[in-house]
């Protein structure tokens, strides 16, 4: 892939963000920008207009689903695909929805291998 894709990662775990950025950028295909809370995530997304937003589900104040709602209701950002990252167990893993339904969106469970993450990003971009 020759074009460098822009990714915004929103997660309150700063160390996690740090390694995601390092690892994605090491592939040479991505440029990663970080935000550590929901509000900053929204601001950064509006400013940078990334190709994909990676969103942590459980964050203080504005959680992942809330951020997604806001991005989705803004015509400017509504077409940017979102992938949820969650340390909470996902439906794929245990067969039942573990929490308040977030809709038919993309989830990835933490811990996640970088190869898997890259695959998921490429999938939503190509759609």
């Amino acid at each position: 892939m020759s074009v460098e894709r822009k990714i915004v990662v929103v997660d309150d775990e700063e160390d996690f963000c740090f390694f995601v950025k390092k690892n994605l950028e090491a592939t040479g295909n991505f440029r990663v920008l970080l935000a550590h809370n929901g509000e900053d995530g929204i601001r950064l997304t509006r400013l940078e207009m990334p190709d994909v937003v990676l969103l942590d589900v459980m964050m203080p104040n504005l959680g992942g689903p809330d951020v997604a709602d806001i991005l989705n209701s803004d015509p400017k950002t509504k077409d940017i695909p979102v992938i949820f990252l969650t340390a909470i167990v996902t439906k794929q893993e245990i067969g039942v929805e573990p929490m308040k339904a977030i809709g038919g969106l993309n989830y990835i469970a933490k811990p996640v291998e970088i190869a898997q993450l890259v695959e998921a990003i490429n999938k939503v971009i190509s759609k």
């Binding site: 996690f16 390694f19 995601v20 090491a26 340390a87 933490k110 811990p111 291998e113």
Partner: peptide, 13 residues
């Protein structure tokens, strides 16, 4: 799982 995520990211890095 959060710290596990960090450890995995760290090892890969």
């Amino acid at each position: 799982r959060n710290p596990l995520g960090i450890v995995l990211g760290g090892v890969e890095y």
